[in-house]
């Protein structure tokens, strides 16, 4: 049955559908509804474990512990909390712990503009923790997609044995749309756990580089290189199974708009005039798919709520100039975007 559902609520419900049985978190706008949903759900489903921790460091570490103990586990936060979670993400990558982190973005840096929309955490998702690792991130632009993509994130986490990021933003998180969650639920595939739960074995899960038996090998470059090559290859192979995007060609136009999250909804009316590409898998960047689509356009313009983060990734991937229409400070105005677009295309 269709009913009005909020994006954040759909994210929580989709996680449960995907098999999640653990949530830990610390309140922060605009993600707090996910935590409230988790608290509400755990009150009537004791098998679903919930903990409100003292900070986002503990929330993120709890997710790692819970995953190791056998639960599909996740947390949700926004920029300031996501910054605090970088340490846990690092351990998740190094110790190969499947889990899902949801980042409902707001304007940063620092406390920034707490309730206003931004998309400025993209490069932090890619490189926010120290060292080399290979992020996988998805970004819905509708309530229904919040529901389905969080499930994809959980499955990818198990297959790739790493944290997976579900990006969202203040508007996608707070969007209400008519959806039929039961109908959506029937299409969801749920993968089993990749890891045997703690207990009954003698494994060692460490943030140090270690060999296959969990023995730290902190001064052997070969062990490190083998490990990095292994996770790089696995991460890329699993991500490649999910080349998710939406493309609306416009053969009459020489310009392709690239946009995602709530901004992609804002620019939809402009598809009369321009081609439109919406990456859903944000990371790793859809290089091949973009290259194929971009062949047909002279101008590439990324419209995003930050100062050109995805544009720089597209430039890097395609080795082509990419124009930028930044939507800054939480002010999303279709008229302003259209004007600015006309300007940058005029300059091209």
């Amino acid at each position: 049955m269709q009913r009005l559902v909020q994006g954040n609520e759909a994210t929580f419900q989709g996680a449960v559908r995907a098999g999640a049985s653990f949530y830990s978190g610390y309140p922060i706008s605009p993600s707090s509804e996910i935590m409230a949903e988790a608290a509400k759900y755990s009150a009537s489903h004791p098998e679903f474990r919930f903990i409100q921790t003292e900070d986002e460091i503990a929330a993120a570490m709890s997710v790692l512990g819970a995953s190791l103990a056998g639960a599909k586990a996740f947390t949700a936060t926004s920029g300031p909390g996501f910054s605090l979670m970088q340490e846990s993400l690092g351990m998740g990558y190094m110790s190969e712990i499947p889990c899902v982190f949801v980042d409902v973005q707001r304007v940063g840096p620092s406390t920034g503009m707490p309730t206003l929309i931004a998309q400025g955490d993209l490069l932090q998702v890619q490189h926010g923790s120290h060292g080399d690792y290979y992020s996988i991130a998805f970004y819905p632009n509708s309530v229904a997609e919040c529901y389905t993509l969080v499930g994809t994130a959980f499955n990818v986490a198990e297959e790739a044995r790493q944290p997976v990021i579900l990006l969202s933003d203040a508007h996608v998180g707070h969007l209400y749309e008519l959806v039929d969650l039961e109908a959506l639920a029937t299409g969801v595939e749920v993968l089993p756990r990749a890891l045997a739960p703690l207990g009954g074995h003698t494994r060692h899960f460490t943030g140090l580089i270690s060999d296959d038996n969990g023995v730290p090998r902190t001064s052997d470059y070969q062990v490190y290189r083998r490990w990095l090559a292994k996770v790089k290859e696995r991460s890329a192979a699993v991500a490649a199974k999910h080349p998710l995007y939406e493309y609306r060609p416009n053969p009459r136009s020489a310009t392709l708009l690239i946009s995602f999250g709530i901004i992609s909804r804002t620019v939809l009316p402009l598809t009369e005039q321009y081609g439109y590409f919406r990456p859903i898998r944000m990371l790793p960047v859809l290089a091949e798919e973009l290259r194929e689509v971009a062949k047909d356009y002279r101008n590439l313009v990324v419209v995003e709520a930050n100062d050109g983060q995805y544009a720089s990734l597209v430039e890097q991937a395609l080795k082509r100039d990419v124009a930028r229409v930044p939507v800054l400070g939480g002010k999303v105005s279709p008229a302003e975007i259209a004007d600015r677009l006309a300007e940058v295309i005029g300059q091209a």
């Binding site: 709890s62 207990g199 899960f205």
Partner: peptide, 23 residues
């Protein structure tokens, strides 16, 4: 000689608490 976790600096307790909560 048992399953063990070597957490980042300072983070043993939240990891341990979550493990106990789940199992």
């Amino acid at each position: 000689n048992m399953d063990s976790v070597h957490t980042p600096h300072g983070r043993a307790l939240p990891v341990a608490e979550a493990i106990k909560l789940v199992n």
